[in-house]
């Protein structure tokens, strides 16, 4: 392996200064992508600047907004009960990400900055309207995650800048979300295609009744009845992975669903629109036509699951 020096700064300022003084350097967090890229000789930096000893980056803050530090590991996210309850799509994503060994060290900041079209945390963060917090010498800037992804493995960030975390606004009541990853294996596999959805509903029927129904019925029983209640969709978000050079929002499908009553017909139409927005490629993992078909199936399933979870 090519030689590099390894630096272990204790603060964000120290890391920024190191980058400036070293010149040929890259940041490393959990290292499960960076170390692989070095071993495969895709990159050969002279210096690695480790971010994983900076305590401030390893915190999940639940204040006015939800703030997830960039060096929070996937295992940390997986164990967080609050995220499981309110940001369930993100919980779904980290459950099926890599393996235990990978989740123990790999970070959410690394997953986003690596910007693989299949990045598991990308679609859930997109449906939560996440903002990326970026630090440089001058201070902090904040950009929507949607604008952060530029293309495969490419993000809108200067090399010396550090992603410090992700800001997520609190969701209104009766919101539910889901992420469904379609892959051949349960563990250690990349998605063939993946879909995350988030719905905020405006139930015009008796809410307590709905809650009781959600609690008592099995999923399939509730699903078949859910659509007959005539619930209005207040807000909808749909994001798709591995259907474009970057994780993609299906805005046309979101707009279609918004303000509509949640019926089987509306869900099917939204799924069709999402599929028509997808621009997948033929690859070894799956052909384009198959991915487009699966977007329909997964979007429908994710919307139904989100609707059910809105009452959990």
């Amino acid at each position: 392996m090519k030689r590099f020096d390894y630096h272990v700064p204790q603060s964000i300022e120290e890391a920024l200064n190191l980058f400036k003084s070293l010149g040929d350097a890259i940041y490393i967090a959990g290292g499960t992508d960076v170390m692989v890229n070095i071993k495969r000789k895709k990159i050969s930096p002279k210096n690695l600047i480790s971010l994983r000893n900076i305590t401030a980056l390893k915190v999940i803050e639940k204040g006015k907004e939800l703030k997830i530090g960039s060096c929070v590991t996937h295992e940390q996210l997986l164990k967080d009960k609050y995220i499981e309850k309110y940001y369930t799509a993100l919980h779904d994503a980290v459950r099926k990400l890599g393996s235990k060994q990978i989740r123990n060290v790999a970070t959410i900041g690394g997953n986003i900055c690596n910007a693989a079209p299949s990045a598991d945390t990308a679609c859930p963060l997109l449906v939560f309207d996440t903002k990326v917090l970026i630090r440089n010498e001058k201070g902090e800037r904040k950009i929507p995650l949607h604008d952060f992804f530029l293309g495969p493995y490419s993000v809108s960030k200067d090399e010396g800048e550090i992603v410090t975390g992700f800001e997520i606004t609190f969701l209104p009541p009766y919101s539910g979300s889901a992420y469904i990853k379609h892959s051949r294996r349960e563990a250690m596999d990349l998605a063939i295609v993946s879909v995350a959805t988030r719905l905020t509903l405006s139930p015009e029927v008796d809410i307590d009744f709905l809650k009781r129904e959600a609690g008592e019925k099995t999923y399939s029983e509730f699903e078949s009845r859910l659509l007959s209640y005539g619930i209005t969709v207040k807000e909808a978000r749909i994001a798709m992975g591995v259907v474009a050079p970057r994780p993609l929002r299906a805005k046309e499908a979101e707009d279609y669903l918004c303000g509509k009553r949640l019926t089987d017909e509306a869900i099917r139409e939204a799924s069709e629109i999402a599929s028509s927005v997808a621009k997948p490629r033929d690859t070894l993992r799956g052909e384009a036509w198959y991915r487009r078909e699966m977007v329909k199936v997964l979007t429908r399933r994710a919307i139904l699951l989100s609707a059910k979870r809105a009452f959990d």
Partner: peptide, 21 residues
């Protein structure tokens, strides 16, 4: 996972783990 070791009670792939960490 053939290289799995336990660091601070967690399973980790030692082949990707920088020794400096």
């Amino acid at each position: 996972g053939a290289c799995t070791v336990v660091i601070d009670k967690m399973a980790v792939n030692s082949c990707l783990f920088p020794v400096m960490e």
